[in-house]
Design a protein around this nucleic acid. Structure first.
Lengths: 210, 210, 210, 210
DNA sequence: CATGAATGAGCCTTCATTCAT
DNA sequence: CATGAATGAAGGCTCATTCAT
């Protein structure tokens, strides 16, 4: 966690620091990112940085938290609060839609998140207690879906959660990895169509059959 | 490519160097990996290292090649050579089976591969011509599957390739990420069962319906 | 150019760094000179050095500039500014006199300059745009001397410039290379006498004859 | 001095080693020249090199000797042996002529020589007993010239020797330093003309006057 | 709270030289 | 006499972090 001093900072300066950190961590993997560059871009003294944060790790944790919270903002509809009122596939649809929206509006954050998601070493270094929340959340949703009778009762929720998580991780690639699979986020209808295809794929895979 | 001197080395010493490199690259991301540590563990002088390899990059490329080739060994059945004689889902089954076997027997290599697969920056640094082969291969298989009439003709092969790639990348997690989703690789029948579940999930998603 | 930090340094410390650099570059050719030695002698951490200078080359360029400027100080009489008011041989006399004075008071700088002047390889590495200023300056003086009617109109100014440059480079040797040819710089009258001899030699060589 | 083994070598191999050394020392200053490169180019094992020479210094000394001897070959007319039969300026003329011829036919050697001539540090490292032979030789010639009554008896032979040496060193520049002062060595008559101009310059400077 | 100079461990890499075969 | 692997000291440079002001 940043030190108190950081939060006492004038809004604007705090924003500059965050902005600089996002740029640096999006551009370079954790170990190559330089706090010197961040301080420079933020227009603060290198010494000042250490009055705000304990160290590089501290900053990165904070940034990671920001990303998670930012991501949550995109979900924060009454839907998620009233999960029981919606169907599993409706919820999944919303999840993907928000995911794409987040990706569209926050490309830098996606880069940083990918950086972290695939660097177990770093995760361990940052959070000894790291848990895969995505996995847990999918499993929760799946169990509720089962309870509601929407899903094939024979599915292995743990395994399917992993599969859904795997698919989830590939959202970024679907957006960025050029070529055929790429989606134009500005094309709202095309986006919906893509989500529908994904959902169809998944739905066929796990829905209850009579 | 390593220098000739490396291949002239006594089998045993060469093995020590490779072993040390695998350990280091599995434990640390590329930029954090230290050739000093590798030389130390291998029991060679730091200077000797540079008689075997041009530089760190050279070593890493070599290690990456080793991994690719090792992975290929697991696939190298007549199946892959005679793709046309087998069904799409049979091939996928084999793919996953070999994937799991590889993962089981080469946990370190999985770490290194993940490290690389998710660090585009590094890929570009190492191979200007890098292409996502996994994606391409799935797309090829899918098109053949369509031609054979096994798959739903309405699927978007590019998108499905991404989804399958995403699932593929999560194979490692399915094995290692603790808790429920974890598979015991020593339990052959459990493994087969898992693969069957995955295949069922995917099959339902894309197979041809009458 | 050194970084700002270098110029913000307390006079004394800055002097120590320069002093150490002069010692090192006077004692060893560029590629043999060690910044470690410089840092040690200056009493600063090796890391600090790189807060003052971008790299070894940066330091050397700075030192070279210092030398050039120091040398110019010795010439900086109104004479050079009002070249037209003086005769060619008067100017040459002043040139040599100041050259000897500079050499006498800055023996280390002479060593460094020689080091550079005779290492084209290095010059190219440091300045892509390097030009032989000494040659150009002599040629200019010669042309003015011709215009004033002081010099034999049949001389080849390019060739003579080379010859004068060659002689010029040997000023250092005349001072330092022991034995007979050596001048005692503390003996002002002896020095003047030497210059007169040199001038006589040159004058006879190129003056206008009736 | 090279070890005996070197001289026992088949002519051809010995030549390859020398050739390689000349190339390397002409291309790089002593401290940057790599014996690895020499061994490679010569097509010998690095270890073999140390069977021929004690070390890098030993090789360089040998090369320097070769150059000196090569240079002497160009002088080795009866003229030098019967100095007394010729006039001072005749001898000087021959000296320059041979100098230019040597330069024309051995550009690499010139580079190496310059390298050495202007690196006092290296000279000291190589020959504790280093003496400026050029200076001594000019002084000898001058004294003989005086004895013959060809030269102005009031000249300071030590000083003039230095001046002539300085001019001598600039021979290389006269050839190579592009621009106006450059001589086309293939133009025999132009070359003679240049030498005549140089001689005129010097002759005017020191000849006996009535 | 700001500043920015100071630090030093540690990195990758080079190369002359040795030595066992 | 040939070979070429082995060595290790040393070099230039980076950067997170500390600290005095």
């Amino acid at each position: 966690m940043p030190k108190e001093t950081f939060f006492n900072l004038p809004e604007q300066k705090r924003a500059r620091v965050i902005e600089a950190a996002l740029d640096e961590f999006a551009a370079y993997p954790y170990h190559k990112a330089r706090i010197t560059a961040i301080a420079d871009q933020a227009g603060i003294a290198k010494g000042s940085f250490y009055q705000y944060f304990a160290d590089k790790k501290d900053l990165f944790k904070y940034i990671a938290d920001l990303i998670v919270n930012k991501k949550l903002e995109y979900l924060n509809h009454d839907m998620m609060l009233n999960k029981d009122k919606y169907g599993f596939f409706e919820l999944l649809h919303e999840l993907y839609l928000s995911g794409f929206r987040f990706a569209k509006e926050n490309p830098r954050l996606i880069d940083i998140a990918n950086n972290l998601l695939n660097n177990k070493e770093l995760q361990r270094e940052l959070w000894n207690d790291y848990e895969d929340q995505s996995f847990d959340y999918f499993q929760l949703l799946l169990k509720e879906g089962l309870a509601k009778g929407e899903l094939d009762p024979t599915i292995d929720t743990a395994l399917v959660s992993r599969l859904l998580t795997g698919i989830n991780y590939s959202l970024g690639d679907i957006l960025y990895k050029g070529k055929d699979g790429k989606i134009d986020l500005d094309d709202e209808s095309g986006l919906i169509e893509t989500i529908d295809k994904m959902l169809a794929f998944i739905k066929n895979g796990i829905k209850k059959r009579e």
